[in-house]
Amino acid sequence: MFLELSQIKRAFGEGESRVEVLKGIDLKIEKGEFCVLLGPSGSGKSTLLNIIGGIDTADSGYISINGEKTADMNEKALTRYRRKHLGYIFQMYNLIPNLNIKENVEVGAYLSDSPLEVDELLKTLGLYEHRHKLPNQLSGGQQQRTAIGRALVKNPDILLCDEPTGALDYKTSKEILALIDDVHNKYGTTVIMVTHNDAIKNMADRVVKLRDGMIRSDRLNETKLTVDELEW
């Protein structure tokens, strides 16, 4: 198994205000799989993604990637894990505001031993002519594409996407989803996408539904749709 989560628990706060966000998550994801974590606000899906991404740590349980448990990793090893294996895409893009578009992507490329060619990637993303602009000079969709470029350029094993279309309009959302799907198909990248948009589940290989910190269903999608076919 490529990615395995076992009995992941996470709570916030103390005493009476303590809230258990994750109540024991077991999940297995195959290499190259496109997995959607679906659930309403407060279901714990983003927390789960952050734990997978090493941004947050579980109170108990473990995550193993290629058989290596992240709990056994020290801080440096955990950084190396993110550096070598993960690409991250956020709802609010999180670009570095004082770097131009190309530089934002290059910041990702710097981390990889075998990065993708930056200019080629920018052309693929439709950003080449905007490469000298600052993020605040671009639309939301263009900024998200830049964030995708930054995540992809280092050719990660796993692409973690946290509501990547949450701040975008319908058309742009579909463009972004198509882009992620292309990457998944072209490079065989494992994609884990958090969303509350029910329609998106139809493009995934695996759909995991969460509610109240627990997995309510975990099923393979037998009837995958293309992005074009998605409607919401």
Binding site: R82, K84, Y88
Partner: peptide, 11 residues
């Protein structure tokens, strides 16, 4: 930005 570079995997 510093936090983001940490997430990206910068030491």
């Amino acid at each position: 930005s510093i936090s983001m570079t940490k997430i990206l995997g910068y030491y």
